[in-house]
């Protein structure tokens, strides 16, 4: 059932950084500005027709990455090449045109729909903005999309409060689909839903991808959902992409100690499984003052001296599997082993 997709990159993200300036007042006293490094040099390709998942815990920068890509926030540095153009350098007008191809589905289906508008108006708004069709054509498009996501015709005149969470998420998805986009950035689209509804929306996302040839950037903290839906996974920690690879490789053969810990922390719905758990000590450090060297070294059970000082580079392992960890750098790792043995 593996989706067939070409290995050509639709969007190439290179060294994307997003820093937020911390509150100014106190920084004057401390001297100089401080920044929250929400995303700190992330590079990945979004391939045509695939589902690329960004996973990580809260505060790791996965949502910021998605939003920055759509320029809901402006990037501090880096580039994102789409159709030969750098999205971060486009004027607002040009960017608005690109947004026809790139749409977003948000996490909270309660706050992302305007409570004072009817569903029909909510769904027609993107068409108005992008000047697509005349009034009756717009209604036709909306009706068609509504049936695609499993809404009924009479829902057109209803208000958001009349719908349950799962149906609202269908509306959010329909709003993204009306302009016939190529890429949809799904920011935790099923996290707010109950288990029995979650599977309905996951199935819908998969069917739409198959029928319409969509590309998803799927942002989620739920590893079992990500495992189910994605082709490739990027694992983020404190603004850095620490591991990337095909879903099966990352899940079955994780390389980075953080990925290992994350995977072993997922509670499995099977009481017979006894797992060896990589327990992490402590909490995620503040992105205001991230640790030197490898950002994970403060919690890493295998941290070496080199991790405290040197930032690990992205290492290519077999099968398009990349990892940012000194443990997989043969030179450093063997040096360390010598030290340990001596």
């Amino acid at each position: 059932m593996q989706a067939q997709h070409e290995e050509t990159a639709l969007i190439q993200v290179r060294n994307m950084k997003k820093y937020y300036q911390a509150k100014k007042g106190l920084n004057k006293l401390k001297g100089g500005n401080t920044y929250v490094k929400a995303v700190d040099g992330v590079s990945f390709d979004l391939r045509k027709g695939e589902t690329y998942a960004l996973v990580g815990e809260s505060g790791c920068g996965k949502s910021t990455t998605g939003r920055t890509l759509l320029r809901l926030h402006d990037a501090t540095e880096g580039e994102a090449i789409y159709n030969g153009k750098d999205l971060f350098k486009l004027s607002n007008k040009e960017m608005n045109k690109v947004r026809k191809d790139m749409q977003m589905v948000f996490q909270d289906p309660y706050s992302s729909l305007n409570p004072r508008k009817r569903i029909g108006n909510i769904l027609e708004e993107p068409l108005n903005i992008h000047n697509i069709g005349n009034k009756s054509e717009r209604t036709d498009i909306v009706m068609e999309v509504m049936s695609k996501v499993g809404l009924q015709v009479d829902h057109y005149y209803r208000y958001p409060h009349e719908f349950s969470g799962g149906q609202r998420q269908r509306i959010g998805l329909a709003r993204a689909l009306v302009v016939d986009p190529k890429v949809i950035i799904c920011d935790e689209p099923v996290s707010a839903l109950d288990v029995s509804i979650q599977s309905q929306v996951i199935n819908l996302l998969q069917n739409l991808q198959r029928d319409l040839g969509l590309t998803y950037l799927f942002i989620s903290h739920d590893i079992s959902v990500v495992r189910h839906i994605s082709d490739r996974i990027g694992v983020m920690y404190l603004g850095n992409l620490v591991e990337e690879g095909y879903t099966d490789d990352v899940i079955e053969n994780p390389k980075h100690p953080y990925t290992k810990a994350l995977l072993s922390s997922v509670p499995l719905p099977d009481p017979n499984v006894q797992r060896e758990r990589v327990m992490l000590q402590g909490d995620i450090p503040s992105p205001l003052n991230p640790p030197s060297g490898c950002v994970f070294h403060t919690r890493c059970p295998f941290a070496m001296d080199v991790c405290k000082t040197t930032v690990p580079q992205s290492l290519n392992l077999a099968g398009n599997h990349t990892v940012r960890c000194h443990l997989h750098d043969e030179e450093i790792a063997t040096d360390e082993k010598k030290v340990v043995n001596a």
């Binding site: 059932m1 799962g166 599977s199 309905q200 199935n203 998969q206 495992r227 839906i229």
Partner: peptide
């Protein structure tokens, strides 16, 4: 039975159609 079947698993087949409990509470 529906609830247990509808959660995505960490092993076995991926990308398949998940079984659903139809409708809403």
């Amino acid at each position: 039975r529906g609830l247990i079947k509808s959660i995505p698993q960490m092993t076995g087949e991926r990308k398949s159609e998940l079984s659903v409990i139809k409708g809403n509470v």
